[in-house]
């Protein structure tokens, strides 16, 4: 990131808008200039992306990229505070741009109404200074991480699941030019498909992404402005149920497949999308549409072979059931 900010100027309206930043001695006009000069890419406009985008826009980041392929659904509104009821059915990137432009007309938005994958990730990420990962699935998490490492971008990370939150700053650029650990130093590979709960099993307390996404926005602003100590080489774990937060150290792993001593992976990978139960995840004993007893299903759920869901619970009243794996695969139950 270039630190030359002399040419960055503000008009009277902007100075008034950002006055509460500018009067912080450590931040001052120089911090605000750095924000205006910065280009930040936010991947995902969901629960994490909503507070991220709102705060980065309000703060006056100069250019914000927004990537999402989805449309706004009613079930998003419980946590995706960027959207209103009237946005349901609209492409998320469009609804987001409208909402954010209304919040701050001095911010430039670049929207990508597409799914980030191995063919476009490097192109999209390369033109930005910092990436903030607000995605909700493992394949995109690893894709964003790997692309940031390959493209030399800082990846401000947060992740949530039900009552659990995690945050870190990956691939941080230190003044000596070295890089901090990345996601694969912490978790070298994604979980196998069979251990990922189905979409319906996922779920999240609505306010949790608000908390973690706000922490993410804070780290983005810190990285841009150079204030404080970034959450690099450290993992924040937040347990919203018990209200406990802990910080764990993350070290570089010499065996990291993309940035270790002998990297084995030099290109981006599109991991199989493994939301929901698909054929590969079902116990070997179960063929599609095979009839099983409720007791058998319960055994499988208890032993962790398959994941229980609200659908399974409801069906325990019946004598037997035909498990339509494809229903689960779509993640609708």
């Amino acid at each position: 990131m270039s630190t030359t900010t002399e040419k960055i100027t503000f008009n009277k309206e902007e100075l008034e808008r950002y006055s509460r930043h500018i009067i912080i001695p450590e931040f001052n006009i120089e911090g605000q200039r750095k924000l205006k000069k910065a280009r930040v890419l936010v991947v995902g406009t969901g629960g994490l992306g909503a507070p991220l985008l709102l705060y980065l826009t309000a703060a006056g980041v100069g250019t914000i990229g927004i990537v999402d392929f989805d449309i706004v659904e009613k079930s998003n509104l419980q946590r995706q505070v960027l959207f209103t009821t009237s946005d349901v059915g609209r492409p998320k990137v469009e609804a987001a741009r409208d909402r954010l432009s209304a919040l701050n007309p001095f911010v430039n938005f670049e929207v990508f109404n597409t799914r980030l994958d191995s063919t476009n990730a490097l192109d999209i990420i390369s033109s930005f200074d910092i990436v903030a990962d607000g995605t909700d699935n493992f394949p995109t998490r690893y894709l964003v991480n790997d692309a940031c490492v390959f493209a030399g971008k800082i990846n401000v990370f947060a992740s949530i699941y039900r009552f659990e939150g995690q945050a870190s700053v990956f691939n941080y650029l230190y003044p000596d030019g070295s890089r901090g650990p990345n996601y694969r130093d912490l978790f070298p590979a994604p979980p196998p498909a069979g251990l990922v709960p189905s979409c319906a099993e996922g779920g999240v307390l609505g306010v949790l992404p608000g908390i973690l996404g706000s922490l993410q926005a804070n780290e983005v602003i810190k990285v841009i402005s150079g204030i404080g100590t970034p959450l690099a080489g450290r993992l924040l774990q937040f347990d919203a149920a018990e209200f406990q937060s802990k910080i764990y150290k993350i070290s570089k792993d010499p065996e990291n497949p993309i940035s270790g001593i002998n990297p084995t992976q030099t290109e981006l990978i599109d991991y199989e999308i493994f939301c929901g139960i698909n054929q590969h995840q079902l116990p070997h004993e179960l063929e599609l549409k095979q009839e099983i007893s409720v007791d058998q299903l319960n055994d499988w759920i208890k032993s962790g072979k398959i994941f229980s869901s609200s659908m399974c619970v409801n069906l325990t009243n019946t004598k037997s059931l035909i498990l339509e794996a494809l229903l689960f695969q779509k993640g609708k139950y």
């Binding site: 799914r115 699935n137 979980p191 979409c199």
Partner: peptide, 29 residues
């Protein structure tokens, strides 16, 4: 960063299990 699963423990030590997490919404389909 220590001796892996052979790392010796003493009375009062605290272990934490940290899994990768991702999710919340209907993600990709």
């Amino acid at each position: 960063e220590k001796q892996g699963t052979d790392t010796l423990l003493k009375d009062g030590d605290e272990l934490s299990i940290i899994p990768a997490i991702a999710g919340g919404s209907g993600l990709v389909n």
